Each structure stands twice: as C-alpha cells, then as structure tokens.
Amino acid sequence: MAVFTPVTTAELGDWLQDFDLGDVVEFRGIQSGIENSNFFLTTTHGEFVLTIFENLTATQLPFYLDLMRHLASHRVPVPDPMPRRDGSLFGMLKGKPASIVTKLEGAPELAPTPAHCIEVGQMLARLHLAGRDFPQHQPNLRSLPWWQEKAPAIVEFLSREQRALFDAELAHQGAFFGSADYASLPGGPCHCDLFRDNVLFAPGREHARLGGFFDFYFAGVDKWLFDVAVTVNDWCIDLATGVLDHARVDALLRAYQTVRPFTPAEERHWNDMLRAGAMRFWVSRLYDFYRPREAEMLKAHDPGHFERILRERVKSASSLHS
C-alpha cells in the first residue's frame, strides 16, 4: 500500500462527483505495502479507503471487488466496495482503475497470541465456505506459473547456496502441483495474503475481537490449504527465525477445522503447502527487492525472511522422512 500515483485533493474532489459519498474532509496516503496506491479517505458520509491499482487491469478488477461484496453479504467482515452513481464498483483516476471501500474498525495485531489465531482460523474457514457459490473465477496470479516466469529475473542475484535452494524448491513444487493428490485438494476463492497487517482487531469488553480481513487484491481461486499455509507462515512463527510456534499453529488449525475439517490429502500435504506458501513470498520479495518499481513511499520487504521460513519448512520435511 505504497503511493505510486499521487493524487491532489482537488483531483480527488472532482473524481468523487461520480459517487454519493459527500465532500472530502481528510485525505492521506498509506505508507505500508508495496503493490497499489492507497489512501485513507474521510468524507462527510464516513471513513473509507481509496485504492489506485497499479498492476491490476480494469478487466481483472471486478473479480476482487465483487468477491469482497459477496463475502460482505455473507457476513464475513471485509471492506465493502462503494458503488458509483452508474452502479459500477470502480472508475478511472489518473488513468488507472480505482475504487473506494469501507474502512474496517480496529488495528493490526502484530504480536498475536493463540486467542488471536483462533479468531483468524475460524473466520478464514468461514470465508472459504462463503466463497463456494461465488460465480466468478480468476486463478491466484502469484502461484507456480508466476514463480516460474519470474525465476530468470531473480536467480542472477542469488548466491550458490540460495540458487540451490531456489531451484530445488521450484522443482519440488512443480512435482507437487502436478500430482493427483494436489488436484484432489478442495479449493475456491482465497485471500492468498492474510498476513498480520491485513487483519484488524477492535477492542472488546473482555478481549480484542476480530474487526475484519482486508487487502484482497492478491485474492484468487486456489487450494484452501494454500491460504491456510500462507496464514500460518505469518501468524504462527517466531519472526526472527521462521520457526513455527506450535501453540499458535495448533490454535489456528483447530479453530479452522471446527468450521471446515481438513481432508486426508490435506493432512498428508500440509508441509508441502507450508513450503509452497514460503516459496511464493520468497519469490515475490526477491523480485520486488532486485527489480523494484519507483514509488513515493516504498520500502521493499526483506527477502531473507521467507528464505529462512522456507529453509525451516524444508528442514521439517526432512525430519519427517528421516
């Protein structure tokens, strides 16, 4: 959520004439993130988030916005896109597609406990089940084909040891994704990026309550187990080492499975999918770090973080088979 495309208050005011959202009260850029230009927007009608999409096209965008609207209608707490006067959920701003969504209550919990993981696990399962009747289909655009596509632009920057890990994991995941077991895994619309900073918790009477999931612009149709693995790889680890915190892992997985139990194939391939989740973000962070785009407020994430996580998951797989 960096700012690649700056917008003045006057430009925004003109653009808002196509909405029934009142007048601008406050408007400021959001500094975190690396994919789109995002702004907090307060109008005389409420608090919202404006997103200008830097990579997604006007053809791709309806999937994400319609998915959020679908989930919101199923009582999954997600940002609800605001329609323009013509009924569309986005318009063109500075030559790029842009949308306005409701701002959720709360703040990210960057030091989660098992109690936080329980709430995240249950809601993620609810999200998966709520998406079963969503009629649109768009694959996860950052899955295996994207890793394979970006590999040539990355490997020249890797050490010999890193290159060995990268090549071995790409081969492992290629075999896994091509297997009959993988094809049998259940799936549907997934968030695909449910990190700690994409979940909000609001104050409650006894403890913090889940305020909602946001930033759906990496969402796609994928295996549900991949979505769980991506979430566990962020919510349930020691950030310094990438080692899993088993109390948090157990809390999140038990909570998820009270809503949607794993299939036997999902149980068998849990570690493979943890590795896939780590590989996905190692590839993207390497690409963003070594092939950056210009932005006003951009700080690339450390690729080493997901390299450590991947090494831990590979090590765990070796111990399972030893």
Rank of each mutant, 00 (worst) to 15 (best):
L71D: 12
L71T: 12
L71G: 11
L71V: 10
A72G: 14
A72I: 00
A72M: 04
A72C: 05
H74K: 15
H74W: 07
H74Y: 13
R75T: 07
R75Y: 09
R75H: 14
R75M: 01
R75S: 14
P77G: 06
V78A: 11
V78L: 12
V78K: 06
V78Y: 02
P79S: 00
P79L: 03
P79F: 03
D80C: 07
D80V: 12
D80T: 15
P81Y: 03
P81T: 00
P81D: 05
M82F: 03
P83M: 02
R84C: 06
R84Y: 02
R84K: 08
R85D: 03
R85Y: 00
R85T: 12
R85C: 02
R85V: 08
D86P: 10
G87Y: 04
G87S: 09
G87M: 05
G87L: 02
S88E: 14
S88M: 09
L89H: 04
F90P: 05
F90T: 02
F90C: 09
F90I: 02
G91N: 02
G91M: 01
G91I: 01
G91T: 04
G91C: 05
M92Y: 01
M92P: 00
L93G: 01
L93S: 07
L93W: 10
K94R: 15
K94G: 00
G95M: 12
G95E: 10
G95W: 11
K96L: 14
K96N: 10
P97W: 10
A98P: 00
A98E: 07
S99V: 00
S99C: 15
S99L: 08
I100L: 14
V101L: 10
T102Y: 14
T102M: 13
